[in-house]
Design a binder for these strands. Structure first.
Lengths: 268, 268
DNA sequence: GCTACATGCG
DNA sequence: CGCATGTAGC
């Protein structure tokens, strides 16, 4: 069976439930991981998700900010709940689908100043990465595991519109790039979209709202990721690499999220 | 020539410029008087009004609140500017169109407590009526003059959904009804919509946003008026009375204003 | 309810 | 820019 996993920082699921339905209708993800749902569990538009064919839901919400969810066509089983957020934000949600553990994160953006001692938000971001990396290092690489979500780091020089400029800007500083590299190294994660669209091709999943024409200026970043454990290597490559992509057309829709969905297919 | 004059409390002209365009396309008013534009002059969507065929504009705006405008298919000439608002709000705008003076007002709602001494907003409302009535009393009844806008008073017992109940509620208290009667008496204004839809027929132009189904409950008020001077009697009656109406269908549109447009035709 | 305002966050 | 938060006014 094909398992299509998608991740999307939706920037308010209530504001954009119709866009989610359109994306689901057009791309038929089996599992959709959302970040920044910006609502409590009880405010999540459950009926709309049932109607769009993703009735199985695991929601971690809070009032107004952050919030993550997993919506699935297939039943969800429990997966380890990682309490990685020291501030108690709703930034982690997990489930097991068709035997695959899915860990969905909204990692803190980290504020403006890339300095742990001066900026507690940046410290929080790196702390989150350290906790996550330590958790993953405990795992058996052979187990089927996906780490996905808005990780708020663009890891490679072709994941940013300007590597030199962005190296001083939070999301692509050397210490964040190193934190992502350490996470990947922990159990040898495979960066599925990058495997499909290799460097030096530019690959972005986020474009600022402040850009007048995001296509023209194309000052994007690849902040949204789908990482597969080595145990999923065969499942990920059975279809070839064209089975992961960034759905950048969604960024052109009316009143879009600033993030585009990213998807990857496994064959189980 | 036919001169169709319309008035509409639009509750933010920027939020509802597409609804104004639809109303203008469907009803072809020659002059559209707006209240609660809720923007400064420079924030008014001038281009949209040019495109909808009402390029001649007289705008009295302020930041965020109140604000009135006259938009016209025909050129606007100056008319007396009545400084009736003691608080300096943008509540009065005037122009002369095809020889007819148009005075467009957004009279203060007046707060909750119908007592001049306890409630300064109610005092302001009555003060506004007194100043307006005194100004009108100076005029020659034979001159062509329209007083229109959101006057925030339902003058007759069939202009409210429940006369007995509303007599205690600001908008239909005896002192406000008397203020409206005094204004009409000042030079013998003709209440054009009421001439066309005589009592005891109910006639409303406003329905609260809080009503679940405004058609079902129909707890409306007639707050928006088009008053013609005696000098316009022949022009107003040449087409018969069916030429004035409340466009209550607009109240059913998506994201509507709480007020419906009111229009009246003159033949000049 | 629906619109403004201001502020925080990204 | 555009989501939230809250408050005020009608």
């Amino acid at each position: 069976m094909r398992l299509r996993i998608a991740t999307w920082n939706i920037n308010s699921v209530r504001m954009r439930v119709d866009q989610v339905a359109r994306f689901v209708a057009e791309q038929a993800p089996d599992v959709l991981c959302l970040q920044e749902i910006k609502c409590r569990e009880g405010e999540f538009p459950v009926n709309a998700f049932v109607e769009m064919g993703l009735p199985y839901l695991k929601i971690a919400g809070q009032k107004g900010w952050h919030g993550v969810a997993i919506a699935s066509r297939l039943p969800l089983e429990d997966a380890p709940e990682l309490g990685l957020c020291r501030e108690g934000h709703a930034r982690c949600v997990s489930a097991k689908v068709a035997g695959v553990e899915i860990q969905n994160f909204y990692i803190p953006a980290g504020g403006d100043v890339p300095d742990r001692t001066e900026n507690p938000k940046f410290d929080h971001k790196l702390d989150f990465f350290e906790k996550l990396t330590a958790e993953m290092a405990k795992r058996d690489p052979k187990d089927p595991l996906i780490v996905t979500g808005d990780l708020n780091v663009a890891p490679g020089e072709h994941d940013v519109w300007n590597h030199k400029y962005m190296s001083k800007v939070v999301s692509h500083t050397p210490v964040e790039v190193a934190a992502m590299a350490a996470l990947k190294a922990s159990i040898g994660f495979i960066d599925l979209p990058r495997e499909c669209i290799p460097e030096p091709q530019k690959l972005f999943s986020w474009w600022s709202y402040r850009a007048l024409d995001f296509r023209m200026s194309n000052r994007g970043l690849r902040l949204d990721h789908i990482l597969a454990s080595p145990g999923l290597r065969d499942a990920a490559f059975r279809l070839g690499c064209a089975s992961a992509r960034v759905h950048d057309d969604c960024r052109e829709w009316a009143k879009p999220s600033d993030h585009a969905p990213v998807s990857a297919d496994l064959v189980l």
